[in-house]
């Protein structure tokens, strides 16, 4: 995603082009929603947070002065998820491993399989995706945030550090720890991951 394009669209929106806002929402939808879902792991909660983030963003657009719109949206989303976790029951915490999709009530029909793959491949990929998701869920919150911001939105570490209010060295360290944990958790799936990365 090109930030320059987002900034251009934002400028159009500020000049009165309402359609530009729709395009901004469309272009940021996937990474932002994936980031939120990666933190909350509940599609209904993720939908509400996504909508809430955008409503807050629209209200605060007159104060937005940066040139990284997506990073700004991620920061709002992160803060919103943290606020949400504080309002939930005391035994609920983002620090705990989240439930698997089956445990959270979601069914397989909730997820759309890749349209170019056959049923067998789909099942295999689905199981692999489940294990990856389970491994990411086991990461501590700060490491999970860095990992998701880096991989889902392709945010640079400088921006990730600003979002988390830490130094860039801390953000890098968190990513190193996250990759080290994932390397251990997905050791059995490394070959499958290698194949996937070469075919995609």
């Amino acid at each position: 995603m090109e930030e320059h394009n987002l900034e251009t669209l934002l400028q159009h929106y500020r000049e009165g082009d309402q359609a530009a806002l729709g395009r901004i929402v469309d272009q940021t939808r996937v990474p932002l929603y994936r980031f939120i879902y990666g933190l909350v792991r509940d599609p209904h909660v993720a939908e509400d947070v996504f909508q809430d983030v955008w409503i807050r963003a629209i209200k605060g657009l007159h104060r937005y002065q940066s040139d990284r719109l997506l990073a700004w949206l991620f920061r709002i989303a992160r803060n919103r998820v943290i606020d949400l976790s504080r309002k939930r029951k005391p035994d609920y915490s983002l620090q705990q491993p989240v439930a698997s999709p089956e445990q959270s009530g979601s069914t397989l029909e909730t997820f759309i399989p890749h349209k170019d793959r056959g049923p067998g491949q789909h099942t295999q990929n689905h199981e692999l995706a489940l294990r990856i998701q389970d491994a990411v869920d086991k990461l501590p919150l700060e490491q999970r945030e860095v990992y998701l911001m880096r991989t889902e939105a392709d945010l640079p570490f400088k921006v990730i550090a600003q979002t988390q209010n830490v130094s860039i060295n801390t953000a890098l360290a968190r990513m190193q720890y996250a990759l080290r944990s994932l390397r251990e958790l997905l050791a059995d799936d490394y070959e499958a991951l290698l194949t996937q990365s070469r075919t995609s």
Binding site: Y33, R34, Y37, G38, P43, P101, S106, T110, F111, I112, P113, H114, N125, H126, L128, A129, L130, I132, Q133, V136, Y147, L148, T151, E152, L182, L186, L193, Q196, S197, S200
Partner: peptide, 12 residues
């Protein structure tokens, strides 16, 4: 690359 791979399949 594993993260987006999982998201593509798992994120509704």
């Amino acid at each position: 690359a594993a993260g987006p791979l999982s998201s593509t399949l798992m994120v509704p």
